[in-house]
Each structure stands twice: as C-alpha cells, then as structure tokens.
C-alpha cells in the first residue's frame, strides 16, 4: 500500500483485494460482539478535515477511526479559521504541528487531497474531492458487490446518471476495472465527460438496453440544478429516460442488485419501491462503509510510520 489513498489508481489489484479482505475479516471479527472496539490505533490521531458538508461520510470515517481506538478530531470548514480565509496549506501546517497521523479530507476542489499530501507527513485519505474521486466509496461499493454476488471478476456493472460531475463514478470505473468487473456507463450524452471514451468502460445512452445485461445497477445522484444548466430538459424527462423504477427493475436478471451511494433523490433517479426492495443494497452500503474505512485506516496507519 502507498502512504496515501488519494485516488483508486493508488491501489493495484493486490492492494484493493487486501482492503476488501481486511474489511471482511474485521466484519467477521466484530460480528455479534458487544464491544465493537479494537485497540489497533490507540494513540494515533485521525483528523476529519471536511470542507464540504457530508454528514454521512464524516460519521462513517469517525466511527471507523473510533472503532480502531484512534483519537478523532473533526475539523469542519464552517465556523473555523478556514471560513476566515485560512489557506489549505496553512490549515495543513497547523494539523501537522498538532501531530495528526492521518488526515481524512473532503473538499469541493478536485485534487485538494493531492495538494494536502505535499504538506503533511501523515497519511492523507481522500473522502471525496470535487468531481474527481471518492476512493473509499468505490471500495465499499466493490465490497458490497463481492458480498452479495460472491465475486467481482466478470461482474457486469451499469453506472447510471450524472457521470460528468460524479467522483463516485470516476472512482468506481477505475477500481471495478482493476478488480476485473465490466463497467457500462449509462447517461444522457450531456452528463458524460468529453474524453469518456478513454475510460476502461462501455458507454450507452440507453438504460433499457443495458439493464437485462447487468448484474449490478449503480444509480448516481442527479442534482435538479443541472436542469437549469440545460444538461437535460426536465426532471420528469430525466426520470422517464434514466430513472430506475419498478418495471425497469423487473428487466434485471434475477440475482442483480441495485446500489446507490446516497443521498438519494427518490422519484428522480430511483423510485421509492426500488430503493426499498430486497435487491437494494443501499443500507448495507452504509454499514459496509464503516468496515471498509476501518480496513483503510488500519492498512495506512497500522504499520510502521514512514
């Protein structure tokens, strides 16, 4: 493993598999226990540096770090020196001076974790940067698929929605490819980046054609604001062409699962009956997120300091 987890390209197949295997062992070790805490990172400090509101991701990392007995400091940009104009570099140097062993960073600017990694000695974990990557989300998605379907090699995954603005999509395409899955991106052409053809994924504009050939459907959040910038004409038209409703779900193979990184727009990209169906892994994804992030923190911090 590299010192940082900035993007999924930091993980080769062996590394990614190690993360998933470690998460599985942690899950098993903690299953049914009253004391869900391990002493592994006692005395280590993990800083959650969140420049964007993301309660679910922050809580997931916080729980993961606490279950490994690390000290956790939540540093949110709002109401802190950051909102008074402190630069990312100065914040980094401050955290460094306080002796943090790892910084988990969420930032609205693509590449911010890469910049941070130049300025701190500890490990940097990307918890979502702009429209670039969200590697732990991809890891927990891969973990969820493997648990449900028993494998990743050859699994056909459709990633549906706003690929252009999605860090989840970027990370999933890269990681799933590394792990041997076959990804098809499904979106209106306006929500696919120019250059998407260079990605290791198929591209389709037709959700109905892709569904019967999918073992996994991963629905991406579509923000209604995109409508105002003419990425699509109306929420209703988007939903009709690219939303996953019950009739479409019925077109999936029997064992196929439906995923969503959350938060969902029920009625927009996903119908409530789909989100709540037995195929849906949405709640599992949240639980798996903690295990996967524990695995990442253990693998980055458990070893000897660099």
């Amino acid at each position: 493993m590299k010192r940082h987890l900035l993007e999924v390209a930091d993980l080769d197949r062996a590394d990614a598999t190690l993360v998933l295997d470690t998460a599985a062992q942690i899950d098993q070790a903690l299953a049914g226990r009253e004391v869900k805490k391990l002493p592994t990172l006692r005395g280590r400090t993990v800083v959650n540096l969140f420049y964007e509101d993301s309660t679910r991701t922050r809580i997931s990392f916080e729980l993961a770090a606490k279950r490994l007995s690390a000290d956790v400091i939540n540093f949110s940009a709002k109401g802190s020196s950051v909102s008074k104009g402190e630069s990312l570099k100065d914040t980094a140097l401050t955290l460094e001076a306080m002796g943090s062993d790892a910084v988990v960073v969420r930032h609205s600017a693509s590449g911010a974790p890469h910049r941070l990694a130049n300025w701190v000695r500890g490990s940097v974990v990307n918890a979502g940067d702009g429209t670039h990557e969200h590697p732990t989300q991809a890891l927990l998605d891969a973990y969820t698929i493997r648990r449900r379907l028993g494998r990743l090699e050859g699994v056909r995954v459709a990633v549906v929605g706003d690929v252009l603005h999605s860090r989840v999509a970027r990370s999933n395409v890269g990681l799933l490819h590394t792990l041997g899955a076959e990804v098809t991106l499904v979106a209106p052409p306006t929500l696919l980046p120019v250059g998407v053809r260079s990605w290791p994924a198929e591209v389709s504009y037709d959700l109905d054609a892709v569904l019967p050939k999918s073992d996994v459907v991963m629905m991406l959040r579509v923000q209604a604001e995109r409508m105002n910038a003419s990425f699509f004409p109306s929420a209703r038209e988007y939903s009709r062409r690219y939303g996953l409703d019950a009739p479409r779900m019925a077109a999936l193979p029997d064992d196929a699962i439906v995923m969503h990184p959350g938060p969902m727009n029920r009625g927009m990209e996903i119908a409530a009956e789909v989100a709540d169906s037995v195929r849906s892994t949405i709640v599992e994804q949240v639980a798996n997120g903690v295990s996967v992030r524990m695995a990442v923190l253990y693998l980055l911090l458990g070893g000897s300091p660099q």
Binding site: S110, D129, G130, H132, P193, G195, S198
Partner: peptide, 15 residues
Amino acid sequence: QMHEGDRSASLGLTG
C-alpha cells in the same frame, strides 16, 4: 480549469 479532453475527464476538472 484545464483543456477539455481525456485528462480533464479523468481528473474531474471542468474542461
């Protein structure tokens, strides 16, 4: 933020 092409697509920077 940068030239729109393969690299902006993968870096997630507006092209």
